[in-house]
Design a protein around this nucleic acid. Structure first.
Length: 145
DNA sequence: GCCAACGTTGGC
DNA sequence: GCCAACGTTGGC
């Protein structure tokens, strides 16, 4: 199982909207960046992802699961662009802010800190576990959900 | 709302 | 293949 992080501007697509979709999930359309697309192409069913609110909020608000492998983006007018579908898995009991992440030296290598403009990015397992801990989740228990 | 950082495009 | 111009993202 691999770990990822998806950014979304909450006034465009929020965690609340994602949760409202339930197990049906939602296509992560609109990505027009090769690095982000390539990350999505590497995702497997059941991989986990943090859902991060950018521009407003600036915090990890929930955990999602990949529920459809990479496929053409239905909203793209160009066949270059693929995307996965994700579904909400659980809330972060306590949202983990960018400030908290920046202040934690275990997380200083994250793309969230070093490459702020990458909207779909991989998360290392130790980083995943640390953010779960900060947010009040047990990362090991989460694996079995 | 501003602007720095970064990515892409296209003329040469 | 370089690089100027342009577009977008996202923190502040």
């Amino acid at each position: 199982m691999k770990y990822w992080l998806f950014k979304s501007e909450p006034f465009k697509w929020s965690w609340e909207q994602q949760k409202a979709k339930g197990d049906e999930g939602e296509e992560w359309d609109g990505i027009r960046n090769y690095q982000a697309r390539n990350n999505m192409r590497e995702m497997k069913l059941g991989d986990r992802a943090f859902f991060y609110h950018s521009r407003e909020g600036l915090e990890v608000v929930g955990v999602a699961e990949i529920c459809a492998l990479s496929h053409p983006d239905s909203k793209a007018d160009d066949e270059r662009w693929d995307c996965v579908d994700i579904k909400a898995l659980c809330d972060m009991p306590t949202a983990v802010s960018l400030g908290d992440i920046k202040a934690n030296e275990k997380l200083e290598e994250m793309s969230l800190v070093k490459n702020t403009r990458l909207s779909v990015q991989p998360v290392l397992e130790n980083e995943w576990m640390e953010i779960c801990r900060m947010g009040g989740l047990n990362g090991q228990t989460l694996k079995k959900l």
